[in-house]
Deep mutational scan, measured.
Amino acid sequence: EKIKSDFFELLSNHHLDSQSRWSKVKDKVESDPRYKAVDSSSMREDLFKQYIEKIAKNLDSE
C-alpha cells in the first residue's frame, strides 16, 4: 500500500490528465526510486491506470 501511494505521488508530480499515456509517462519517471519500488512493469501500468481513473473521476465530480 505504501508503494502504491508513493507511486501515485510520483505520478501526481507530473501533472497528468485522463489523456496521458503510460508509454510517455514511463520515460519521464523510470529513473525515480518510487518507480523502481514497484516490482513488475505490469503492476506499474496497472497502478498508472488506477491513477488515471482516479483523476478522471475527480474531474467529473468538479
Score class of each variant (00 low, 15 high):
A56G: 15
R34Q: 01
E62P: 15
V29N: 00
S20I: 05
A37D: 03
V25I: 12
V29I: 15
I3K: 10
R34Y: 00
A37S: 05
Q19V: 06
F8P: 00
D60A: 08
L59R: 12
L16A: 05
S23H: 07
D32H: 00
K57Q: 13
K26Y: 02
R34I: 02
S12F: 04
V29Q: 00
D27S: 15
Y51W: 07
S42D: 12
K54S: 14
S12R: 10
E9I: 04
M43I: 05
V29P: 00
L10K: 00
D46S: 12
Q19G: 11
F8N: 03
K49F: 05
K2Y: 03
L59E: 15
S31T: 14
S42H: 10
S23Q: 07
H15I: 11
A37L: 04
A37K: 07
S41D: 15
N58H: 07
L11C: 04
D27C: 13
D60S: 11
K57C: 12
K24R: 11
L11D: 01
S18Y: 11
V29E: 02
P33W: 11
D39Y: 08
F8G: 02
D6A: 08
Y35V: 04
V29C: 10
I3L: 07
M43W: 06
V29K: 00
S41T: 12
R34T: 02
S23N: 08
D60M: 06
D27M: 13
S41M: 15
K57Y: 06
E53T: 11
S31W: 06
I52K: 10
A56Q: 12
K54M: 11
R21P: 07
I52H: 05
L16E: 03
E1R: 04
D32N: 01
L47Y: 14
E9S: 09
S18W: 07
E1Q: 05
L10M: 15
R34L: 00
K2A: 05
H15T: 12
Q50W: 04
F48W: 05
L11Y: 00
A37R: 06
Q50T: 09
L47P: 00
L47T: 01
K4G: 02
S5D: 09
R34V: 02
D32A: 00
N13D: 15
N13G: 09
E30A: 13
L47Q: 01
N13W: 04
S23K: 10
V25R: 02
S5H: 08
D6V: 01
M43K: 13
L10W: 00
F48Q: 03
R34C: 02
S61L: 08
Q19K: 15
R21I: 14
R21G: 08
I52F: 06
M43H: 05
D6I: 01
D46E: 13
S31A: 13
E30T: 05
F48K: 04
I52C: 08
S23D: 15
E45P: 00
A56P: 11
F48A: 04
F8A: 03
R44Y: 03
E9N: 13
K4L: 05
N13R: 07
E53F: 05
S12H: 11
S31K: 12
K36F: 06
E1K: 15
K36V: 10
S20A: 08
R34K: 03
E62V: 13
E30G: 09
L10N: 00
F48L: 03
S12L: 04
Y51H: 05
D17E: 05
S42W: 08
I3F: 05
D60Y: 05
R21W: 04
S5C: 04
H14I: 11
K57T: 12
Q50Y: 06
P33F: 07
D60P: 11
A37F: 01
K54Q: 08
S5W: 07
K49G: 08
D6Y: 02
D39V: 11
I55P: 06
L16P: 04
K2P: 03
L11P: 00
H15C: 09
I3S: 06
E62M: 09
Y51V: 00
L10R: 00
S42R: 12
D39F: 09
I52A: 05
D46Y: 14
K28F: 09
S61V: 10
K2F: 04
R44A: 12
D27F: 11
F8Y: 09
Q50I: 05
S41R: 07
H14W: 11
R21D: 15
D46Q: 12
D27V: 09
S18E: 15
I55M: 14
K24S: 15
S42Y: 08
L59C: 15
D27Q: 12
S31M: 10
V38D: 04
S5R: 12
K36D: 10
K57I: 12
S20H: 05
N58M: 07
S12Q: 09
N13T: 12
E9H: 04
D17H: 08
E45N: 04
D32Y: 00
R44V: 04
N58E: 14
L11G: 01
Q50K: 09
Y35N: 02
S12A: 15
Q50M: 14
A56M: 08
K49W: 06
K28D: 10
W22L: 05
K26S: 06
A56T: 14
L47V: 00
D39C: 11
M43Y: 07
S20W: 04
K49D: 10
S23C: 13
I3Y: 04
K26V: 08
K54W: 06
E9P: 00
S61A: 12
S31V: 07
S40Y: 03
R21M: 12
E45H: 08
Y35H: 03
S41P: 13
E53S: 14
K26T: 04
E62H: 09
E30Q: 14
K36C: 06
D27K: 15
E62W: 07
K2Q: 07
S42K: 13
K49I: 06
K24L: 13
S18I: 08
L11N: 01
L11I: 04
F8H: 05
K57W: 06
E62K: 15
A56W: 05
K36H: 09
S40P: 08
I3T: 08
L10H: 00
E45S: 05
E30L: 07
S23T: 10
F8E: 05
N58R: 12
K57D: 11
Y51Q: 02
F48S: 03
I52G: 03
D17Q: 02
L16F: 08
L59H: 15
N13V: 08
E9G: 04
V29T: 04
K4Q: 06
F48R: 03
S12G: 11
I3H: 07
L47W: 10
E1G: 06
D27T: 14
F7V: 00
N13F: 10
F8Q: 03
L10D: 01
H14V: 09
S42C: 13
E30N: 13
E45I: 06
L11H: 00
